[in-house]
Nucleic acid binder design. Sequence first.
DNA 1: AATAGTATTGCAAATGTTTTCATAAAATTG
DNA 2: CAATTTTATGAAAACATTTGCAATACTATT
Lengths: 343, 343
Amino acid sequence: MSLKQSGKADIVDVARAAKVSASTVSRSFNHPELVNPATRKKIDRAIARLGYIRNRAAQAMHGKRSGTIGLIVPTINHAIFAEVVQSFSDAIEKAGFTILMTSHGYDLQREYDVLRKMLEHRVDGVALIGLAHDDKTYHLIEQQDVPCVTIWNHDAGSRVSCVGAENFAAGRLAADHILGLGHRKIGMIFPSVTDNDRAQGRLDGARAALAATGVDVPVGWQLESPYSISLAKAAVEELWQSGARPTALICGNDVIAQGAVYAALKLGVRVPQNLSIVGIGDFKGSLEMEPALTTVHIPAQDIGRIAGEEIVKSVAADARDVTRVRCNVELVVRATTRAIADR
Amino acid sequence: MSLKQSGKADIVDVARAAKVSASTVSRSFNHPELVNPATRKKIDRAIARLGYIRNRAAQAMHGKRSGTIGLIVPTINHAIFAEVVQSFSDAIEKAGFTILMTSHGYDLQREYDVLRKMLEHRVDGVALIGLAHDDKTYHLIEQQDVPCVTIWNHDAGSRVSCVGAENFAAGRLAADHILGLGHRKIGMIFPSVTDNDRAQGRLDGARAALAATGVDVPVGWQLESPYSISLAKAAVEELWQSGARPTALICGNDVIAQGAVYAALKLGVRVPQNLSIVGIGDFKGSLEMEPALTTVHIPAQDIGRIAGEEIVKSVAADARDVTRVRCNVELVVRATTRAIADR
DNA sequence: AATAGTATTGCAAATGTTTTCATAAAATTG
DNA sequence: CAATTTTATGAAAACATTTGCAATACTATT
């Protein structure tokens, strides 16, 4: 029972140790029903003894699946992507796949490069975030004929499969809520929309709702803030310092909204009595904060899970048809918004 | 200039199209200086025309690196892991590697299984979180002789390389701070320590500090709460309902601490006037919340980055020696703790 | 007992690439 | 200008596995 510690055993070593041919060992992995149970037992013992681990690279050369799905995200370091990535990952792991993941830091040229790299690794499918991608990226996916799903946005005219919510609807929902409460002096804080179709959609939706009601947001009340509580907080403080006194703030995401709430706390402005704040996204923390944030719920977990199931399905079926799943957004009214008081 | 759209070109197709041999194409990728610039140009054109993408699986069979590093985390869906994963990922991508990532949901048996799977993919190195792993896991790493680094914990006697902080020191620092402020009626809220050496270390450190000062924490004041703001909040509310009135709370991590702060807010207990709260971890949100959380800073970004650099280094050098990097923890006093008022 | 069928196994070819070795062409040297 | 060195390329073996086909051994049928 001497252990061979080298750790470099290959399939012929196993075959030799089990006194069978390499073909039989291979078969015992891939078509166990074709090999005699007794032989299988011998092989299993040899495998354990030699510490043999199959080489998927060699398998992948035979047109077999690599067993990996590429996932390309802008960044992992945002609560919202972490949530989506986790549920996506759970879904594909359930089907036996492993994630090959990279981030591109919101740089669409880099996104193309890492996609190429994933294709070198012969991923069985790829998932991207959002629908705004370089034309080269789309072209590569089509040319290489690799199953693909995009996560987070829904668009009826998308060039590839998508699973997500309509950001336009989310933006409109947030704005309509504020308008419905009677607010007319409204400020907006959104992240930069360059290379970010999520933010763009939301902003467009909110603007559409405001325009439909004939409400005009002064230029100085339209703030841009990155995805950061403290920077959003600072932006709102500055707005106040400038003398602006909106009665409501529509925020492009919950992180910005959270910053706005903290700014109000610091400025002594009472939320929601003197200032209503609505976010978009419904992150884990939004329900739990004090006061709990009114926001538009985007079902990140569902989106991640469904996207995972979709990509697995299309890899398994070797299908390339474009499927689109729309996940509904929903206003959740909590404690940061209130109807405007008569003056 | 007709494009061949099949997307199934291999190296011999390229060779044929460029009217050279496959060897030359391969060389033009791997040792470009050995091939005539004119030939190289012909090859590049053929590659572009056919949409050829190299097959790393086939490369990997020649003892070449696979170019992937396995990263196994308990879960991605926690602010703190997201941060570490991001900086780790940035560091190894800078060196040209890609992350193969899976999560095991705090199940060490599953961790072993996913590690095996990663080895099947012939990752060039693996990174794990923490130092508590199944003996089988350690054995597999040693037997397969794969470079390995663990992230998050430092331990001078670790079986493999580690980059991280001393959780024991972090726990002691938190407790000493509270004790130094004169508190003696102290409650503790920690996550479950099973299969979680991070939490265990912190708890031990805090207990050691308390014991050294002769402070005894009543059994009912030692709470266990998972990594969740709302559950921690509920736990603290319950503690109060039971009539307990500690003057300070030592929390096993910042998420629990945040829950505690919210509970106090809800209970009408003023922080820090009537209750001091200290966390451990220093997540992004901790600085930004109101009141800003006093906590023990653990340099997640540094840890991730250094761990990435270490694994890349040991893959490149083909070295297997155990290196240990200790990242210092540091108390950051913010607004949730205060010296006890004389009574 | 001969025949047909079935279960089990091995041989060899194939997969897409890299690399060693050999060869041819070009450049350099005396 | 012949001999030598250098540069550029191709042929073929090697990598670790899978699989089609053929061969063998066993079982059931008549």
